[in-house]
Design a protein around this nucleic acid. Structure first.
Lengths: 353, 353
DNA sequence: CAGGCGAGTGATAGCGCTACCATTCACAGA
DNA sequence: TCTGTGAATGGTAGCGCTATCACTCGCCTG
């Protein structure tokens, strides 16, 4: 064997190769890669070009070994929606491969499961934890983590713990915006299906709905509001009673997509066309929203972004703590988006006009 | 600073600590960790105990750096169901953290997107690719990968490329089993909703259905079979025409969950109760299956297992290839499971009896 | 013009682990 | 007895990168 031909089909471009190519030391290349200052602009540019030319890409293993910066981050979840999970994972994965941190994914079922999982994390020597809902809203989990001295970040949490970092959207504002959108479409009798009373964002979303109506000079009416529990079935039932009123609403805003889908089924059952006879919109933009027919207009959270940002914040928090500095928790709010699909239209019209 | 206190809360137990604790060389500990032979059983045991006692856990970065074994694996996907994706990711993630390989997740949209993504993979120096459906069934993608000389593995593929590795379930057998289950429940007029004609497993599932009927002495009838396209809407439409026949089927087997959900909606629209008036079952066990009401009886693939195994096989393939040995592609078949939920029952009965 | 300073760069020494070879030892066959 | 062999272990040298400190300038200050 004449030369070392190794993994990745011989594609072993190292920092040294880049350095030699430019005529600087490996250190300088390292500095450029890590965006450190104290590198002349001219040098930086030459190095960047060489990196491009040689198609160099840093070896994560070596990097985190040398920098002692390899953090172990756990993501623990307890039955979130699968589509939520997958977006979350995508975001987390993206960020973790950029930051070169090791990821541990754990599912925990039930309230005692959490304790077990936390024990496990401790023995695994985890450095920080990412918490998606519903765990992100659990004061119990937050407390346990705090007692263990483990940094954590809540992603898409409706009730951020004031002393822990979080990334979320403004549920109130989102519900407000969606309601406004319905009003702009020409709807005046807009029904609402609440989420599970346990959950704080049920309340926020409801409040957003009320606020938008009020602001538009419409009177919120209790009889236009149904109680749901975030399930398809509960949406079905709530919609049924709402739609069987004499003066039925021309639009229905469900607090999540599953309930909206149930509401669509209910409307169909009653012989009503969606959106011609009744507009139905959801919240979350889960896969359900685009699976049913007609596809649901809904509110979308940038889950992947939020997760990615959350991990970044967590890593920063860990770094800050390690350096002994105090850490002030950051609460980031991301923008939501209203996704218009086929389940909404002006009252009495088809969506496709 | 008296001693080096570093990441993971000072939990810097290295292989040397373990070695010292036992009184052997680090090499021996390394051998134990990697399950190599040529270590006396007694030594192995002592080392294992020390590992346990010191709560040692190997540093992945160092390991993959030293062993030059760090493979970059890409997972490329193109709009699979999100819940499928998340299970897949869970499995892959689990395996990758065990094998210490770097993961790159890429989405590719459309047929030209694939080419772009493959280019990107090439420039990233990827060592292997995991292909979930529908990419796993694309002969075009398989061909491109082969031309690049990149090892790959298809996960949940219905048409494994004979010269590439794959993990899947037996779609035929699964459809066969589900149909048998319906027959065992007492159904005799069992309708079937086919999937998209493009897709090979549409065909396999259909054939499984036919075979089971035949085996039970029932005559497959064309008028009990509807054409669908894997969408909710197509399931709705197909079910509608099937259920409006004079002699309507007492059970409907849809080739996936979205169509089954559409079929349920259609039944409801026609005033039929599920499962009392008609049993409806799906395939895949996506989140749709447990979101709708009644929840769907369906066929479940062990996606997470399949993904995990697939990655393992891929890694092995890469290792084999690197060592210059020829690689014989392996086709693994995993077991499916029939998940009974509320959408099925004996004809004319409620599921809950 | 000595002295100081800070920007830009290089040399060196590992990070924790494993590949590879050397070494030891026991025991079989000549 | 002398190799030969293979099993069990240890020593050494890095893997690709970065922390750290040392160094060289040019330029400012007194």
């Amino acid at each position: 064997m004449a030369r070392k031909v190794s993994r990745r089909g011989g594609n072993i471009v190292t920092i040294h190769d880049v350095a030699r190519h430019v005529g600087v030391s490996p250190m300088t290349v390292s500095r450029v890669i890590n965006g450190e200052k104290n590198v002349r602009e001219e040098t930086r540019k030459k190095v960047a070009e060489a990196i491009e030319a040689l198609n160099y890409s840093p070896n994560m293993a070596a990097r985190s070994l040398a920098s002692q910066d390899s953090s172990r981050i756990a993501l623990i979840y307890s039955n979130p929606s699968m589509s939520f999970l997958s977006e979350l994972l995508l975001g987390i994965l993206h960020q973790s491969s950029q930051s070169g941190c090791q990821l541990i994914i754990e599912s925990c079922e039930g309230p005692e499961g959490v304790a077990d999982v936390l024990d496990k994390l401790k023995s695994l020597g985890v450095d920080g934890v990412v918490l998606p809902p519903p765990l992100s809203d659990s004061t119990r989990v937050a407390k346990a983590l705090r007692e263990m001295g483990l940094p954590f970040v809540g992603v898409a949490t409706s009730r951020p713990s004031p002393d822990a970092a979080s990334v979320s959207i403004d549920d109130f504002k989102a519900a407000f915006a969606m309601t406004q959108r319905l009003i702009a479409l020409g709807h005046r009798r807009i029904g609402f299906i609440k989420g599970h009373p346990n959950s704080y964002y049920s309340q926020l979303r409801h409040e957003g709905y009320i606020a938008a109506l009020t602001k538009a000079g419409l009177t919120p009416e209790d009889k236009l509001v149904g109680q749901g529990y975030f399930t398809y079935r509960s949406g079905f039932d709530a919609a049924e009673s709402l739609l069987m009123r004499d003066e039925r609403p021309t639009a229905l805003f469900a607090s999540n997509d599953d309930m909206a889908a149930g509401a669509v089924a209910s409307a169909h059952r009653l012989g009503l066309d969606v959106p011609k006879d009744v507009t139905i919109v959801g919240f979350d933009d889960t896969s359900m929203a685009s699976s049913v027919w007609p596809e649901l207009t809904t509110v979308r959270q940038p889950i992947s972004d939020m997760a990615s940002l959350g991990l970044k914040m967590l890593l920063e928090q860990i770094r800050t703590r390690r350096s002994g500095q105090p850490y002030a928790p950051v609460h980031e709010i991301r923008d939501f988006a209203i996704i218009e699909r086929q389940s909404s239209s002006p009252p009495g019209e088809d969506a496709t006009d």
